[in-house]
Design a protein around this nucleic acid. Structure first.
Length: 289
DNA sequence: CATATGTCCTGAGAGC
DNA sequence: TGCTCTCAGGACATAT
């Protein structure tokens, strides 16, 4: 579930840990199969013990902690993972804990540990070197495992990256190598906002339409971040954070099949399937070309 | 039983 | 023909 706005919300809530020092990293007792952590937890522990957290970043749908040795710890929530500093919804699905202390001779309250809580356990945690991180981001060439972040990408860069693809635009927006951060929910919302048919082929959209998609992308994602993301019917996000997001009340098409389109007020929202996943759109507001 | 938010891998097929 | 792009399907694990 977590897409860019939800992960950005997690990131912002982690900011109080900036400048704290790692005491230890550990898997937590969890009755389930352990999640993937690379390198092995003892190696990881040796590399980051006593290191200071100098940045709390986000890269697409990942939370990235940077240490003073320039290694980065990357949390990848996938379907149901949550990164938080505080109280987890339960202990049963708690997978990982990063214990912290304040710099100097700390009196006062010790900082909350960073926790990775994941109901399904499909999430990943990985410590990467600066070199590995460059490979992941493509070192500015745009050819890494992840494309530029959906909030940061320029109108021109989006157009240049997408214009030659023969894929349907909705499917392309889900490709993290093209741009990072958009998932199934926001892809439908962005294309509805832009008035573009999700089945349009990328290479048949005009430059003007791509500009519209870029603008809708910024608008929808920023609004969703302001609402601290969406909580879905599954409720994972809600359970994990005391104060869950409210953007689900702003959805105009996602999971609203057969309801009236809030933009035109006339047509009803349709659900179609693309690349084996649901897409929601308004046939009146989103016409091809 | 089908469905659900994400990612990774493989193999087959399309088309430049 | 050859290469690249694209997509379908399965896997992961769990709840509604």
């Amino acid at each position: 579930m977590p897409e860019l706005p939800e992960v950005e919300t997690m990131r912002r809530r982690l900011l109080p840990i900036l400048g704290t020092i790692v005491v230890s990293a550990a898997r937590t007792p969890c009755f389930r199969k352990p999640i993937s952590i690379r390198p092995r937890i003892d190696v990881l522990n040796r590399r980051i013990a006593n290191r200071t957290i100098v940045a709390v970043d986000r890269l697409g749908k990942r939370v990235v902690l940077r240490f003073d040795c320039d290694h980065r710890l990357i949390f990848e929530p996938r379907m149901t993972g949550i990164v938080l500093a505080g109280t987890p919804p339960n202990r049963e699905h708690l997978r990982f804990e990063l214990k912290l202390r304040q710099r100097g001779n700390s009196r006062g309250v010790p900082p909350c540990p960073v926790l990775f809580w994941d109901r399904r356990g499909l999430g990943r945690i990985e410590l990467v070197t600066p070199q590995q991180f460059e490979v992941m981001t493509g070192n500015g060439t745009g050819n890494g495992k992840l494309g530029p972040d959906a909030i940061a990408v320029s109108k021109e860069e989006l157009y240049q990256r997408a214009r030659t693809s023969r894929r349907e635009v909705k499917v392309a927006l889900l490709d993290q190598k093209l741009i990072a951060g958009i998932g199934n929910l926001y892809a439908s919302e962005i294309l509805h906002c832009a008035g573009v048919d999700p089945r349009s082929r990328c290479d048949r959209l005009t430059k003007r339409q791509w500009a519209g998609i870029h603008q809708a992308m910024q608008q929808v994602l920023e609004s969703a971040i302001a609402h601290e993301g969406s909580t879905l019917s599954d409720g994972t996000y809600q359970k994990a954070l005391d104060d869950p997001g409210s953007y689900q009340n702003q959805h105009r098409v996602y999971d609203r099949a057969e309801l009236h389109c809030p933009t035109c007020g006339k047509a009803s929202i349709r659900r179609i399937v693309q690349a084996q996943r649901s897409t929601f759109h308004c046939p009146r507001c989103q016409k091809k070309q």
